[in-house]
Computed example of a mutant assay.
Amino acid sequence: MNMNNCHDWTLIGLSVNWQIGELQIEMLDSSSQRRVWVARNLVSLVLPRQHPWGPSVSINEVSVSNAGNGVTAKLEVQSGDVIECIAGSFDLH
């Protein structure tokens, strides 16, 4: 999974399948192709939408790190909001 080059991608939306513990984050990449980032075995999701820097749907940066309880991913939107999730694994489609 390489999420290092997603600056200025467009965040479209998120969906959670609670029953199977899966999160899907839908985005458009720099060439306007639809991409889906899938988190499996979801443990935690923090989803603020406060716009401290003003409204935006563009991604600023993504960081991913391994933790004792899974993989932690933080997706910073150019609004200043940081979406944080912990899951067993992440895949980009």
Score class of each variant (00 low, 15 high):
residue 19 Q to W: 15
residue 78 Q to K: 15
residue 58 S to Q: 13
residue 66 N to Q: 13
residue 35 R to C: 02
residue 75 L to P: 04
residue 40 R to V: 14
residue 26 E to K: 12
residue 85 C to W: 06
residue 36 V to K: 08
residue 64 V to R: 05
residue 79 S to T: 04
residue 22 E to H: 10
residue 77 V to Q: 04
residue 4 N to V: 14
residue 78 Q to N: 14
residue 27 M to A: 06
residue 3 M to Q: 07
residue 83 I to E: 00
residue 60 N to K: 09
residue 65 S to C: 10
residue 57 V to Y: 14
residue 67 A to H: 05
residue 71 V to F: 11
residue 82 V to F: 00
residue 76 E to A: 03
residue 81 D to S: 01
residue 2 N to F: 09
residue 25 I to P: 06
residue 50 Q to M: 11
residue 7 H to M: 11
residue 85 C to A: 11
residue 22 E to V: 13
residue 92 L to Y: 07
residue 87 A to D: 00
residue 88 G to D: 06
residue 32 S to D: 13
residue 38 V to D: 00
residue 3 M to S: 05
residue 12 I to D: 12
residue 21 G to N: 09
residue 64 V to L: 08
residue 2 N to S: 07
residue 40 R to K: 14
residue 79 S to Q: 01
residue 23 L to Y: 02
residue 44 S to Y: 02
residue 92 L to D: 09
residue 2 N to I: 04
residue 20 I to N: 14
residue 16 V to F: 08
residue 7 H to T: 05
residue 5 N to K: 13
residue 40 R to P: 08
residue 47 L to N: 05
residue 52 P to F: 14
residue 15 S to E: 14
residue 1 M to D: 08
residue 90 F to C: 02
residue 43 V to R: 06
residue 30 S to G: 14
residue 79 S to R: 03
residue 60 N to G: 15
residue 26 E to M: 03
residue 21 G to H: 13
residue 75 L to A: 09
